[in-house]
Design a protein around this nucleic acid. Sequence first.
DNA 1: TGTAACCGTTGTAGTTGTAGAAGGAAGTGT
DNA 2: ACACTTCCTTCTACAACTACAACGGTTACA
Lengths: 170, 170
Amino acid sequence: MTTPQPITDATREAVDRIWAGMRSLVLSDDRRGEVSEALGMSFIRSKALRRLVGGPLTMRELTERLSTDKPYTTLVVDDLERRGLVVRSVHPDDRRSRVVTITEEGAAAAARAEEILARPPEAMRSLAPEELEALDRMVGKLAEAARTAEGTQGAGAARASGAGQRPGTG
Amino acid sequence: MTTPQPITDATREAVDRIWAGMRSLVLSDDRRGEVSEALGMSFIRSKALRRLVGGPLTMRELTERLSTDKPYTTLVVDDLERRGLVVRSVHPDDRRSRVVTITEEGAAAAARAEEILARPPEAMRSLAPEELEALDRMVGKLAEAARTAEGTQGAGAARASGAGQRPGTG
DNA sequence: TGTAACCGTTGTAGTTGTAGAAGGAAGTGT
DNA sequence: ACACTTCCTTCTACAACTACAACGGTTACA
């Protein structure tokens, strides 16, 4: 959106190829099973934990970020609370709401999950420092563009995840 | 592997940042729900269809590519066969095996799924043609490196690729 | 004050996928 | 002929998740 480009066939082909490559790279490197095994909980629970490291959330907010529904969020948080990884408290300004806060132990678990998920694949070591630098810049631009697009009408991703039926990705 | 690079802090940081960016880009753009809705079937069924466009597979091979187990593959193929999207036949050289072949209708459905999944996000239009060209080259190198690594010691990715979120311990 | 709306919870039901045991059919090796 | 294995299927059980309805407590508003 920031700089609309002329669309040539070559450009379109490059875009398609790049996207296919990125998708293949990321999707073939799925570590959700490893995370579930390491933490001893279903992936969505570790996802909830990771969403909470940024700060406390209400059940409603957590529900949105998990792309699930309220009853299931209750279930997940119940389990997490039983394990001592989060605590529930009443919202100071709205007593209808509960605020879910991660505990120290929960944060440690989330960090363990994040460490597994964020570990770059070996393949990235095959790029030279200059190449990495350039790649870094461009991925940064893409991320930036995606972030701003999300605000305007980003629907695409958000909508699809809401209507989705299969277990969420991550 | 091809060209081991000196690991500096800056390099490591760039690698981490690139990987995080790519992951975020791909994972926040999940269209599985859209595919399920468009084809009227669970995502794993469309995945089976997409695996079959490259050519017929035995149940065993399909099971591996789907990262599931044999009984469930039977179930999925049963359903796909009932819909007329695949056909089962006896393997010419080993009558124990069944060969699953995609039908014309099945191939059309797979193409519809692929079209949805492969559609690049709008954000990519914010890159200039030269940037795309460079990005294309580097993603290509990464894909190449990943492909060769898979042969040598891969396992990791393939094994975990199934959304296997079994807690095991509950 | 009354009422509508919202938040989280409980309950219930159904779908999807995971897992293991067992069995028939067919191939392999002795 | 015999045991052994592989391939697929059936059956059963269960875990994980989705979906909907309804309820009590709380807040916002006319």
